[in-house]
Every structure is written in structure tokens, then in C-alpha cells.
Design a protein around this nucleic acid. Structure first.
Lengths: 204, 204
DNA sequence: TCCGAATATCTAGCACTGCTAGCAACAAGA
DNA sequence: TCTTGTTGCTAGCAGTGCTAGATATTCGGA
């Protein structure tokens, strides 16, 4: 320890930064875990602080406020979704569109709290043109790639937004118990059929 | 006044019930107005009580809790949406599906807080089979009627759920600023085209 | 090795939330 | 007029996000 004292100016700085980064991630993970286990209502600054074994003010030295923590969870969630979509290659005879849709809906079903933070809870994540997080672009990019084979003459980005919106609507209404579970399959078939097979001769 | 005193047993009861009902509605209206003016975060029991010019405990003599007030607002909102959809007859050359879609999206856009209470905030409104509020059935019924002309061989209820989900997805993602505004028209065209023109030869 | 300085962390508290117990004021019937 | 029962209020609880100020810890130089 003392033998490396002459490098301390750099290494200590490094160690501190590393520890800070680790704790930063620890907070994000704890928030996500707590939300997934007991819902976002259970994620209070006190419980979160208790879980990471620090006092509440420590949270505020890492994040501007509770919203910023949720936002961080959401962004990392987008990264996870992007990874999942990328891995979702269609099995034999299955369309890429269907593979993506199924992966998306399964993600929403299995990680409802995470999904909520990403796409339901309003947050000031910049979705406009400037400074959109890369994870988000990645996830949307995967959807674009899945839609591309069926685009026909249609605008690719707009069509992807329609695809995404439909999936999002199904995911959230399902989560709220507002759709009949026995139609789950039929609904997806209808959606995919409509989006992909539409001959669509220059619009209605 | 005193001349009708001999009927007081009944009339006073009536008057009281009427006044109670009026105040019940007053609370609901105040909550809706406050939410639409400043968002649901601003709807606290204190501010709501102040607005109806009673103390907080009065709220609890009408509703089990704050959630119940939100729920009441949501249900009446469904009635309003149903009425709007019923009025939304297509103009010349426009499909009924499009008229319904536009009315739905305009409702969501113009009454975001109300829409939130109805379809975004989770509530224990019974959506399952039993005891669904009539207002809800009405609204869904209007959507069914709009979808019917384009159903083809497809399952009407499931197709309506897809239609609804897509509209809901578009509405909520738009509201969150997650869709490009310049595609608003294109998106709707694509959706309607896909749902209505799909030849859909027995599914993919 | 020791001390002053800087950093890191905690305790305690504020203003707010939803909600409720218990009291005061009023109206109704005898 | 007095009793009784209802109605609405004041005051308070436990919990929320967040922060100021005090405290403990660690570091760099003599």
C-alpha cells in the first residue's frame, strides 16, 4: 500500500472514480430490482438507500433526484430490449416481423416494471432529435430491421412507428388487464397479417 | 317551506340524497378539472378539498380513497369517449374506421389527463367479465361498430382489440413525445390501410 | 509520524402526501 | 326545550422527496 504511495495521485483518483461508478450502477440495479419485485410505488428513496446500505443523501450525490434514477433504469432497459430483439432471430418458417413482435411482447410481459419505466412513465428523456440515448436508437433500429422486409412501398420509419405503437398498445393494455387473454394469439396474428400482407394500393 | 313540514320525513331525505349526489359529482368534476389543468400530480386531497370548499374528510365520506375518485373520473370519461365516437360519422368518402380513429386520437390529444385516468393509470376497474361499467362497454361497442365494415373473415372482437391497441399505442407514445410529429398523418394512413385493405389469405 | 484540509457521509428536519380519530356544531323528533 | 344523531371540522399520524448543517474519514505535505 505505502510502497505505491508515490502513484497515489493517479491511482487513488482512479480507484475513487471506479468505486463511484460501481456504486452508481449499484443504485440503478437496486432500483430496478426493487421495482420489479414490488412495483415502482415501493421504490422510495429510503428503501432504496437501505438496500444499497447508504443513507438517502448519497443517492443525491449520484443522481439529481428520484426521476433521474428511474430514467437511468429506463435507458439501461432499452439496451436490454435492443439486445433481446437482436437475438430474436426467426425460427424456420417464421417471419422476422413475428419474431421481433414476440420478443417485444415477451419482454413487456416478463419485465413489466422495467417496461413501465421505459415507455409508460413520463420522463424527460430526450426523444426528439438531439441527444437521444444510444440504447434507444439501438432498440428502435432493431424494430426497423424487422419491419424492413415487409415495407413494400411504404415509408419505413413511419411503418415502424405504427408497428411499435401497436405492440406498445397491446403490451400496456394487456398489462392493465384490459384485453381478453384468450385472444392473445389471434390478436398477434391479425396484427402481423395486416401489417405484412397489406397490398395497400396507394392508400385509402 | 314550513307548510311542507308534514312531508319532511320524505322530502328532507330526498333533498339530502340529492345534495349528496350533487356534491359527489362536484368532487368528480373538480378532480377532472384540476387534473386537466395541472396534471394528476396536482390532484391532492387537500387541493381537491379546497376546490370543492370542504375539508378533506368529506372526500372520504363519498369515496373510499383518492383512487376511487380517479376511477370515477375515468368511468365518466369512458362515457364521454363513447358519446364522441358515436357522433363521429364519416364525412363524404371517408371510411367509418378512419372517422373513429380520428375521433379517438383527438380525444386522447385534447384530454390527456382524462385519457390517462381511463387507460394508462392502473386502476382496479373490473375489465374482466363481471361488472364492467356500462360506459366502457359503450365505448368499446362503438369501436366494434367502426371495425365491422372491414372485418372480412376475421374475428370481430379480436380485430377491434388490435385496432384499439394500435390507437392506444399511438396516443400514449405521442403524448410522451416518443413519436415524430411530422409522421402523424402517415402513421394513421398506414394503420388504416393495413387494417382495412389487407387481403389476408388466411394468415401468415 | 503527525496535522490541517478536503472529501465523503450521516443525522435531523422541512414541506408535502393520503388518510383518520375524535371533537364540535347543527338539525330533527319528542 | 331537551335529547339524539348526523355532519363536517380540526388536528394529527406515518410516510414521501429532498436538503442544510454537522460529523467522520481520508489525503497530501512537513
Amino acid at each position: 500500500m505505502s510502497s505505491s504511495a508515490r502513484f497515489s495521485g493517479v491511482t487513488i483518483q482512479n480507484r475513487r472514480e471506479r468505486e463511484r461508478a460501481e456504486r452508481h450502477q449499484l443504485i440503478i440495479d437496486a432500483a430496478r430490482d426493487l421495482a420489479e419485485a414490488e412495483g415502482w410505488d415501493a421504490v422510495t428513496t429510503r428503501r432504496l438507500a437501505e438496500k444499497v446500505e447508504y443513507s438517502q443523501p448519497v443517492l443525491y450525490s449520484h443522481f439529481k433526484g428520484k426521476d433521474a434514477i428511474t430514467r437511468a433504469v429506463a435507458i439501461q432497459g432499452c439496451g436490454e430490449l435492443a439486445r433481446l430483439l437482436r437475438k430474436a432471430r426467426p425460427s424456420r418458417g417464421e417471419s422476422r416481423l413475428r419474431a421481433a413482435a414476440e420478443a417485444y411482447l415477451e419482454f413487456a410481459r416478463r419485465r413489466p416494471a422495467l417496461y413501465d419505466a421505459m415507455f409508460v412513465q413520463q420522463s424527460d428523456i430526450p426523444w426528439g432529435t438531439d441527444e437521444v440515448p444510444q440504447e434507444l436508437l439501438d432498440a428502435f433500429g432493431e424494430l426497423v430491421a424487422a419491419v424492413e422486409p415487409v415495407r413494400g412501398e411504404r415509408d419505413l420509419e413511419a411503418l415502424t412507428e405504427v408497428f411499435w405503437s401497436s405492440l406498445h398498445g397491446i403490451a400496456t393494455l394487456m398489462q392493465g388487464g384490459r384485453l381478453r387473454p384468450e385472444y392473445d394469439e389471434t390478436r398477434l396474428d391479425l396484427l402481423l397479417g395486416a401489417l405484412s400482407l397489406a397490398q395497400h394500393e396507394d392508400g385509402l
